[in-house]
Design a binder for these strands. Structure first.
Length: 441
RNA sequence: GUCCCGUUCGUCUAGCCUGGCCUAGGACACAUGGUUUUCAUCCAUGCAACAGGGGUUCGAAUCCCCUACGGGAUGCCA
């Protein structure tokens, strides 16, 4: 039995495209599912646009997603080097074989490969039988002497013992070229598996790096959880067939296979991805949630490094379940850390639509001033007492008080909000609100 | 233009290979109601699809053909 060897062979461009990420993911899942080897090979034959910086974007993205490679940059392996720019001698050697076999000729300084012109019958692991006949000889060495994509791709797959080529459907038409080359080298064909493409959310065509949500690094920056991104990505074009959607990676690995991969292209859906992310977000332990939120809050200037950790923890504890997207944490918890916040006009309009909110607010403030117990239960008891003696409803106090101390009509649960802000902040914020209102009117 | 691939609710998909269990299931989104005496959740219900046309068959989402539409490839990019 031969061990499975799969590879991801990106060309570093400075971006890590979501489509590439899914191609890596499928390769990685297949390797992990079969106990095979996952190889990362860098296709940097196009000297002009390959920089070390671009490579790091790629490696960082893969690491963030948790897709580790068994052979490749930084980890080495027995089939190196893993940069095509360092494999010149190998390409020379293989090129020599083609020349010796009379399968090449030069024209205008470039080396062309003489195709056989025979129909190439591919047994694709996902699409089944695909027949295509290559019609034109193609360039394998450019006139500047550098080897071209088709040559290096095939040579490396042969030299590295790749058993399964899992790649986007955009390569399906190239496969007849590659099969010609494999045969010319007398090498056995790997199993090809062409996976469907990811189409852009709006408009026509496949997702391109300019599209909203196309870059892995954007998800990383905006605080998405990599587990959610990975989970969502594997649902684009693959299905476990039994309605499972949210699954731990371990389970995905166990269940992954070519059988569950669809033929049709899949349209990207940012809302479903967000839904999954929210779902994962809510499950985080408080400590992990805080560490996820911290950089976002620091970046937004909501907190600085000298933040009171105990207070931060209290605020996060009551905010976590309100967060839909990672960035929401800024809006939801922002007003806990500063006495200067905007009163949202929409929220204000809602509060002042009916009743006598300012009177209620005054009464509420007075109740707070005499309240001793600021635990959540204590605040609730205080509210009960206030309702009792004023003859009003709780609803008469909730909205206006929330507005006065946070400027919003939403946020953490009310009693929790009061409890965490505490007496001093509550009273002074309400006073500030009342005086700002009386000045206006 | 040519070649290759695809086509089930708005979106992701199950069902297709091995035709009847499909009055086509689930999820996101959306709508309505309920729970939460605030906010967010949560729960229930609803909306909504086999691209079209021909075959084959007792019977087709499922098999075959055509058309339409979508995607990709047609580079001395990868």
């Amino acid at each position: 039995m031969s061990e499975v060897r799969v590879r991801f062979a990106p060309s570093p461009t400075g971006f890590f495209h979501i489509g590439s990420a899914r191609t890596v993911l499928f390769n990685w899942l297949y390797a992990r599912n079969t106990g095979g080897t996952f190889i990362l090979r860098i296709e940097d034959t196009d000297k002009a646009r390959n920089t070390d910086e671009a490579l790091q974007v790629l490696l960082d993205g893969m690491r963030w997603l948790g897709l580790d490679w068994d052979e490749g940059p930084e980890v080495g392996g027995d089939y190196g080097p893993y940069f095509q720019s360092q494999r010149g001698a190998i390409y020379e050697e293989y090129l020599g074989k083609l020349k010796a076999a009379g399968r090449t000729y030069e024209q205008d300084g470039a080396v062309f490969f003489k195709i056989s012109g025979e129909p190439q019958v591919l047994e694709d692991a996902i699409r089944g039988r695909v027949e295509r006949t290559e019609e034109k000889d193609f360039v394998i060495v450019r006139s500047d002497g550098s080897p071209g994509f088709h040559l290096v791709n095939v040579v490396d797959d042969i030299a590295m013992g790749i058993t399964h080529v899992i790649r986007g459907e955009d390569h399906l038409s190239n496969t007849s070229k590659h099969m010609e080359l494999f045969k010319a080298f007398g090498a056995p064909l790997p199993v090809f598996a062409h996976i469907p493409l990811i189409l852009k959310e709006q408009g026509k065509g496949k997702m391109s790096k300019r599209d909203e949500g196309a870059l892995v690094e954007d998800y990383q920056k905006s605080g998405f959880l990599s587990e959610a991104v990975v989970n969502y990505l594997c649902l684009l074009g693959w299905s476990p067939k039994d309605d499972s959607e949210k699954m731990p990676l371990k389970e995905i690995i166990e269940r992954f296979g070519f059988d569950g991969i669809n033929k049709g292209n899949a349209r990207f859906d940012s809302r479903k991805m967000s839904f999954l992310n929210t779902s994962y977000l809510r499950e985080l332990s408080l400590d992990v949630f805080i560490e996820m939120a911290r950089p976002i809050l620091l970046e937004a200037g909501v907190i600085d490094v000298s933040v009171d950790e105990a207070y931060l923890k209290q605020v996060m504890a009551i905010s976590q379940e309100k967060v839909r997207m990672p960035v929401d944490i800024v809006g939801i918890s922002g007003t806990f850390f500063s006495e200067e916040f905007e009163i949202e006009p929409k929220a204000e309009a809602k509060v002042f639509k009916k009743g006598e909110p300012m009177v209620c607010l005054q009464e509420f403030k007075e109740a707070l001033e005499t309240l001793e117990d600021y635990s959540v239960a204590g605040v609730e008891a205080g509210m009960d007492a206030l309702v009792e003696r004023s003859g009003r409803k709780r609803n008469d106090f909730f909205g206006v008080a929330r507005l006065a101390v946070s400027g919003l009509d939403r946020g953490p649960g009310f009693y929790e909000l009061v409890s965490v802000l505490g007496k001093d902040r509550m009273v002074s914020r309400i006073e500030a609100f009342i005086s700002s209102r009386s000045e206006v009117s």
